[in-house]
Nucleic acid binder design. Sequence first.
DNA 1: CACAGGCGTTGGACCGTTCCAACGCGGCGA
DNA 2: TCGCCGCGTTGGAACGGTCCAACGCCTGTG
Lengths: 364, 364
Amino acid sequence: MRKLTIRDIAQLAGLSKSTVSLVLNNSPKVDPATRERVLEVMRSHNYTPSSAATALARGRTPFIGMIVPGLTWHMVAAVNYGVASVVEQSPYEIILYTSTNEKDYTALVDRIATSGLSAGLLVVTHDQPLEPLERLHRSGLPVVLVNTLAAPSELPSVQADNYEGTRTALRHLAELGHTRIACVQGPMAYACCEDRYRGYLDGLAEAGLDADPALTVAGGFHAPTVRERVSDLLALRGRPTAIVAPNDNTAYAVMEAVIDCGLRVPQDVSVVGFDDIASSADTHPPLTTVRQPFPEMGRAAAQLLLDAIDGDTAPGVSLPTSLVVRESTGPAPAKPRRPTRTTTNRPETPRVWSGLGPNISTQR
Amino acid sequence: MRKLTIRDIAQLAGLSKSTVSLVLNNSPKVDPATRERVLEVMRSHNYTPSSAATALARGRTPFIGMIVPGLTWHMVAAVNYGVASVVEQSPYEIILYTSTNEKDYTALVDRIATSGLSAGLLVVTHDQPLEPLERLHRSGLPVVLVNTLAAPSELPSVQADNYEGTRTALRHLAELGHTRIACVQGPMAYACCEDRYRGYLDGLAEAGLDADPALTVAGGFHAPTVRERVSDLLALRGRPTAIVAPNDNTAYAVMEAVIDCGLRVPQDVSVVGFDDIASSADTHPPLTTVRQPFPEMGRAAAQLLLDAIDGDTAPGVSLPTSLVVRESTGPAPAKPRRPTRTTTNRPETPRVWSGLGPNISTQR
DNA sequence: CACAGGCGTTGGACCGTTCCAACGCGGCGA
DNA sequence: TCGCCGCGTTGGAACGGTCCAACGCCTGTG
């Protein structure tokens, strides 16, 4: 039994295929009775139109492309959740493009451009050159960035309000009485990290605190480096009683370093993260953090893109964050304790055994 | 300037569109000189065939569907990485379907079935009823499961060797002199967890150790519950000196509980995880764990599916794991210390502040 | 009664490929 | 010289929809 075509349905319903087509596209000009009859036939024969034929005839495709950098970042996953929730209500499907490095990436954009498969493109957590995307956009393919790491551009993008988020975190810490508040910077090449750092500085200023350059350290997102830097921070005379991390994973490393130095979170040092990824509710202690509304960002971006496909272009939005207060922050200690240890050392090359017998390999 | 069609290319090359089509599908029956000329024209005019038209004419689509449960699990992301690396070498693209709950899920399978969009279906980390998938498979759509949580079925699937993985972990612990080895069970409804538990039991037996029922606790994957159970374990007289966790995230909770009880990892208690997700190299101490080869699993699954689409069906494979020895395991202590504390308590409802002003919300 | 207009329906051109049967042509053997 | 063969090429019918101009019918109006 081969697949039914619109012609078969038409015949079964005693109508022309034009009418069936009208029903499919629920045009108002078909008689309700007729429509019902056609629908009934389709239902009972389990008919569905061929998407290839539809795409060809309409001259447009039912796909939106989504470029993600691997998927291993929690935020990408969370954003996707929001994207999916919007897209599945639309006639579109998502084509997933995974780009891991820059070379892949330009080839990928090229492939997307020439395949003409997608009606629009969603780029999640983008940290590659923007130029190919901008060209694509100018050539008529709607492109929306979500949670981009790159600097702002002509492309519409959806962001969390990174600046305001960190500012709120600082207000929280100031209210708890902290006066020595340190900041671990993320990679400053990322616009979001820069915004967060501005939020830190302005937050300090609003609380009437001076920004001590010694309390800003560049740790990137790399846990061992961060632990080392934090260890240094805690060894300072006039050490910080609170540390703001550039994201949650980094905050975990910060907490570990604090504990390694023989201090407690939050009694001796308060720690604030950024993102509120799922595991932050379960860390030890649970992490106070600035929540980025990833699913909402995904939803907003998807909506923006769908609108753009329909011709309504909008400039992009910045969504508010919220501060999730858990237990990694507390009142500033009256008299800060000194750390009991000052270094954390841990080798990083494990041995790997296969299931069959011992063998050696190196890995991060 | 509208998009070029095969007809335009034919005209420009002074040939019929049939010949151009033959070139496109690199048929051996075109004259090499002709082929080169056509290719040159296509190149210089930046021509690419319409995929919709191709799909329609060929009667098959260039898509494979991939169902993922959210994307928030690290393993899903890692598997996707492998899948992507195979698929991008093929003429296929990935359509991403995100299913979060069971209701979505059946609707989703239905939608996939009727849309006829995909030539095959990849189901990652599947924990929903298999029946709809089996029906789909029987109706002719190739389906491959990757890292399924469900029981084995008629569907080809790609797994890690969960049984052997845990067995190897036990050999490692036994060699370190541990004799009291506990096991935190994952949800036993998942086939993988059952396999791992069998590996635990057989590993014990091979080391000549008795399985003490008191040393097996059901913790699921929920961190607070796990911490509580581990706390109980450590309070036992004849407490374990090593604990095997059902996955890495759970192992983190195990380690936290051990530390909460005033004991050290690995000096007092060794901890072994399962998965080797990225962060396990950076935990404190770095986690010894059984690595699942997620990317390879993704690759294998994608290859299996592509083969199945071409008609070569294969029954699925189980890939070997490897033991990654880091620092959370060490020699069994000569004389186990008693825990200094016996409970961990931590409230779980944080306050949430929006960026604008304090407001309250509840969340995990 | 003739005619305009609206409503529901219809035939068929068209979208851009694939694929198959058929064709022209040059070389070779009878 | 003629017929046959194989190679490279070609015309055109699918593929399964969309969409537009046109059509028949029914109703209301002058």
